[in-house]
Amino acid sequence: MCQSLTVGLGLKPAHYEEALACSVQGLWFEVHPENYFVDGGPRIAWLQAIRSRHPISLHGVALSLAADCPPDPAHLQRLLDLARRVEPTLISEHLAWSNWRGTYHPDLLPFPRSGEALGRIVDNIGRTQDVLGCRIAVENPAHYLRIDGHAWDEIDFLAEIVRRSGCGLLLDINNVYVGACNLGYSAADYIDRFPAEAVMEVHLAGYTEDRQFGADLLIDSHDAPVAETVWNLYERFIARAGRCPTLIERDDKLPEFSVMLAERDRAHAVLQRALEEANR
Rank of each mutant, 00 (worst) to 15 (best):
S98F: 05
R243S: 11
D107N: 12
D252K: 01
H268K: 01
E17Y: 05
V270H: 01
V122Y: 10
F111M: 03
N182M: 06
Q77D: 14
R101V: 03
A215C: 08
D189S: 14
Y207R: 05
Y144I: 05
E160M: 12
N232L: 10
A241Y: 00
S258E: 06
A151G: 06
P70E: 09
R127V: 01
I136L: 15
E201D: 10
M1A: 15
R280C: 02
H105F: 15
P55S: 08
P106M: 05
L158F: 15
P141G: 03
A159V: 12
H143D: 01
V226M: 07
L169P: 11
D39G: 13
A262P: 00
L58P: 09
A117N: 04
V138Y: 02
E201R: 10
G149E: 02
L218N: 07
E116Y: 06
E154G: 07
I161Y: 03
Y177L: 06
I125A: 03
R240V: 01
L271Y: 01
C2H: 13
D148C: 06
T103L: 11
Y144N: 07
G26C: 02
A96R: 02
A278K: 02
G179N: 03
H105L: 15
P71Y: 01
L217M: 15
A239W: 02
A187L: 11
R135Q: 15
E256F: 00
A142K: 04
L11I: 14
Y177R: 07
N232S: 14
Q129K: 09
G184Y: 12
R85P: 02
R51Q: 12
E277H: 03
N175G: 10
C134W: 00
G242C: 00
L108G: 13
H59V: 14
P70V: 02
D153F: 10
L204K: 10
I191P: 07
A66G: 09
C2Q: 13
L145F: 08
A96F: 00
Q3G: 04
S64G: 14
F213Y: 15
Q129D: 08
E209M: 13
A198E: 05
N124S: 08
V38A: 11
L90K: 02
R120P: 09
V230W: 00
